[in-house]
Design a binder for these strands. Structure first.
Lengths: 199, 199
DNA sequence: GTCTATACCACGATAGAC
DNA sequence: GTCTATCGTGGTATAGAC
């Protein structure tokens, strides 16, 4: 009854977000209409507004869900304490997680400008919190003298940009397996931050 | 006369593209209306169509102009033949050129999905041609044994993603000067591709 | 919670006077 | 080459019946 109603409603909301995710990743937030999303789910436009306040909050929900899941997954990874091992773990995790979710990644990076300022701030905080995990690894390695990093913040941004870039060209059916790509990036990132060098 | 008319017309076209560049970089192609662009230039909507066939060809013109200028500027740079020197030259050039043109860069990377397929192909060819300049440097270095690169194509994509990422956070009034940022990236990129190591 | 119907507005693009 | 005016379409969001 009430439980069934609630669960059915929650399910519809999830189906709406799933459809919106796919459409927005393909065409962009501004180019996707509420009518399109409704059609994809088999609803009329008006029914969407039983599940969200407006179009903007739909976008916010997609980004927030993605970033919170990303953070939770990184937590679950439980990176080792050793900086070199933690760095390799982070690189492999980031590539694997992002390559598996190209739609979410695309939206979270490209649709930031469509967020109202108050929403932008919250999303940026989540992203920053993710970046800070990598930065902490680099700083720990630098302190211990196992990494040679001139500026941990810049190195963090450089590594994340490099890794996220994989989603723009990687195709599962392509020349290289994901495992092979991970290995190449682990190698490049390790070298970039001066890991494994004679002290 | 006819010359004046032509030059005035060309100038209006340039002002339209400049306004469109700024607006599209800020709000996205789909979110910017022809009316907005016209208003910015001080024209009525209809007048825009004296200078372009439609909205799509405006976007194509912006991207094409950017990528052609980028390629020409790289040519003008005349990278040295020595791989290590050429790599440093490319890194500094790419960061400097892109940091100075955030609007163009943003559009060229983010609005690809708004291109009709036939336009997409041409734009992608230009981008690929730019990437190939870096790839050639990496391959030459690898052949001579001065770089340690497992896969030149992947390394190319990794380096470009890393460098272009600078535009997402760099601010001239920020903590680091552009010169300082360049130096940090030269260092990281050199290490990432194994330059300057004992043979 | 979904439906039909609609309010209200903005869109890209074009026509024709000047 | 720019203007005014308009066509035809589709946008977000809401109202009220069921």
């Amino acid at each position: 009854m009430s439980r069934q109603t609630r669960s059915r409603s929650a399910e519809t909301g999830a189906r709406i977000r799933a459809a919106a995710l796919r459409l927005i990743a393909r065409d962009g937030y501004a180019a996707v209409s509420m009518r399109q999303i409704a059609g994809e789910v088999g609803l009329q436009v008006g029914a969407l507004y039983n599940h969200m306040a407006d179009k903007q909050s739909l976008l916010v929900a997609l980004m927030r869900e993605h970033l919170e899941a990303l953070l939770a997954a990184l937590e679950a990874e439980a990176l080792p304490e050793d900086p070199e091992a933690a760095l390799e773990g982070f690189v492999r995790f980031h590539i694997r997680y992002h390559a598996a979710r190209p739609d979410e990644v695309f939206i979270a990076y490209m649709e930031l400008r469509n967020l109202a300022p108050e929403n932008f701030a919250g999303i940026e905080r989540l992203r920053r919190s993710y970046e800070d995990r990598l930065q902490a690894v680099l700083e720990r390695g630098a302190e211990r003298g196992v990494f040679a990093v001139r500026d941990a913040r810049v190195a963090t941004m450089a590594v994340i940009a490099m890794l996220t870039g994989v989603t723009t060209w990687f195709r599962p059916e392509g020349r290289l397996s994901l495992e092979a790509v991970e290995a190449i990036y682990v190698d490049m990132v390790r070298k970039a931050v001066g890991a494994g060098r004679p002290g």
